[in-house]
Computed example of a mutant assay.
Amino acid sequence: MPTVGVDELSDGDFLLDVREDDEWQAGHAAGALHIPMSDFVSRYGELTEAAPQDGRINVICRSGGRSAQVTAYLAQQGLDAVNVEGGMQVWEAAGRPVVDDKGQPGSVI
């Protein structure tokens, strides 16, 4: 499974958050695309429209389990996808910004 550490990500890197709606609303990385894993197959087209054509898709969830499954699926589709190691828990612990669904400071649940 290809992985990337939170510390290896830049502000401009494409980030796909596959957590559920309540998790997203409580806190997420600003600028991330949100497609819950439970809706992923039916909303796959949103990803193909938003993702950079020749760039990497960094997939994140709370701790890395769900994002690993989505990363594997994307790799099977021939896309350049990597799992963000440790997920949003590590993102928040590293001091990376977390915002709620209103753009205010958020938290990871």
Rank of each mutant, 00 (worst) to 15 (best):
Q77E: 08
P52G: 13
D7N: 09
Q104T: 03
L16F: 15
Y73T: 07
N83K: 05
A93Y: 00
G55T: 11
D100S: 00
D7P: 00
P105V: 15
Q69M: 11
G55K: 12
H28V: 05
G12E: 06
D21T: 13
G27N: 02
L9S: 07
D39I: 00
A51N: 06
I57P: 00
V6S: 05
D54S: 11
E20N: 04
V70A: 06
A93Q: 04
A51Y: 05
A50C: 10
Q89V: 06
R66D: 02
T3N: 06
V70D: 03
L33V: 12
D39A: 11
I35N: 05
R56Q: 11
D101S: 09
P52S: 10
A72F: 00
P2D: 09
V108S: 09
E85P: 02
D17Y: 11
D100R: 00
V6I: 13
L16C: 15
G87D: 01
D39H: 11
D80F: 05
E46S: 06
A68Y: 01
Q25L: 06
Q53H: 12
Q89C: 00
G55C: 08
T3E: 04
Q89E: 07
S10E: 07
G27W: 01
D17G: 12
V18P: 04
K102H: 14
W24D: 07
M37W: 10
P36E: 09
D17F: 10
V84R: 12
P52N: 10
R56P: 00
F14Q: 03
V6N: 06
I57H: 06
V70E: 04
V90A: 14
D39W: 08
Q25C: 07
S107M: 08
V99I: 15
L15M: 13
G5I: 00
R19G: 08
W91A: 01
E20Q: 11
S107A: 14
Y73H: 10
M37Q: 14
I60G: 03
V70G: 04
M1S: 09
A94G: 01
G55F: 08
Q77L: 12
A81W: 04
D101R: 02
R43A: 12
G86R: 10
S10M: 01
D21I: 13
G106A: 05
D54C: 00
A81K: 07
D13F: 02
G5P: 00
R96L: 13
G103K: 15
A29P: 06
D7L: 05
C61Q: 11
A50W: 11
E20H: 05
D7S: 10
V41T: 14
V41H: 14
A94S: 12
D11K: 14
A50D: 09
